[in-house]
Write a protein that binds this DNA or RNA. Sequence first.
DNA 1: TCATTTAGGAAATGTTCATTTTCTAAATAA
DNA 2: TTATTTAGAAAATGAACATTTCCTAAATGA
Lengths: 200, 200
Amino acid sequence: MGRSPVKERGRPREFDTDRALDQAMLVFRTRGYHAASISELSTAMGLTSGSIYKAFRDKRNLFIQVFTRYLSQRGTALRNRLAPLTSGRERLAEWLRFYLESATALEGRRGCLVVGSTVESRALDEELAGLARQAVLRNRTFIDEMIRKGQRDGSIDARIDPGLTADLLLCLTLGMRVMGKVTEISDADAAIAQIMKLLD
Amino acid sequence: MGRSPVKERGRPREFDTDRALDQAMLVFRTRGYHAASISELSTAMGLTSGSIYKAFRDKRNLFIQVFTRYLSQRGTALRNRLAPLTSGRERLAEWLRFYLESATALEGRRGCLVVGSTVESRALDEELAGLARQAVLRNRTFIDEMIRKGQRDGSIDARIDPGLTADLLLCLTLGMRVMGKVTEISDADAAIAQIMKLLD
DNA sequence: TCATTTAGGAAATGTTCATTTTCTAAATAA
DNA sequence: TTATTTAGAAAATGAACATTTCCTAAATGA
């Protein structure tokens, strides 16, 4: 933990790597991997293309770092939201709210890096496509576990199929991120209430 | 209706335009607009790039024709599936089956042109982005009308909100097409039965 | 027959892209 | 001070891309 205070050799970075990655993230999220050009990334990151290559090796590696950071940021934000909640049902409802909010307004139009990469995965190499695929499958497992937890604590009907229900909820949230690209989703509270019917 | 039997001037086409569009459709569906290169389209369509430009003006125009044809083909297939069914509830269930099947196996991995174009819409010009957006919004209206029909014929609970429910079902199917890019969705019959709980 | 029209395609063109090279700047280590 | 290391960026490079040009082929109309 904590930044290393050890002086590093050579000329020090003039820019903040994490800030640069955050700016690149916006470009990759709104435009996708292929349509995000180095010159576009260069403008957004406030670095010349030469500096990008010196710091991040190439576009592909920059994307991997951005993608990893995206998963990390989203994971942290989600964990913070779910932390105070105890029952499986409450956690599932809050998880839905998290996705509904992400699919709304400016954030919705920016889009999801996982959804974007999954949709264009056939235009990416095996490794990049694998990152997207695994992120989707990890989400499925995460939902499945929330449902099972709810069934154990009695907040979710024991008769529903966790795997199938996880698939449906996963589709729902993936679809929210698609829809958020072009339009708003109606009232979040009402939406959550109705989606929770899937658990009855 | 019917092909015009009038002889056209000049050398006749050696290829079938619709067949060529179908081949181009596969490329645009699997790779997306930006990643689909002319040389890739050229190979798939069995035409040199020069011939593509002579017949379809440019990549953008080819895409518009492919997109229009995609909507037309999907619309026809869906109408045929729904035609024999009378109640709103039955039609909605069959509509879900249609999307579940489209999101499965090879067809699922090929992906949906509407979902793909919507996700990369910020990398397209206004007009192309508008095509994707309107296709999504038309789907929402279509679902909304099926729900209202079901409420009128008594097959769907009159108390549910058609607009909200349409949004949720739309997200579900958009998400299916994303998920279909990387994995299979469990048992269709069980999935439909559970999704229909949203209408209770 | 021959002028006209359109198709097909090889090769050329110009642009945009990702990437590298080259040089200068700014730090540390000795 | 000086050698070494790394950063930053302008300019050069080469590849891939969309698009056009140019020539030949194959049809119709007069």
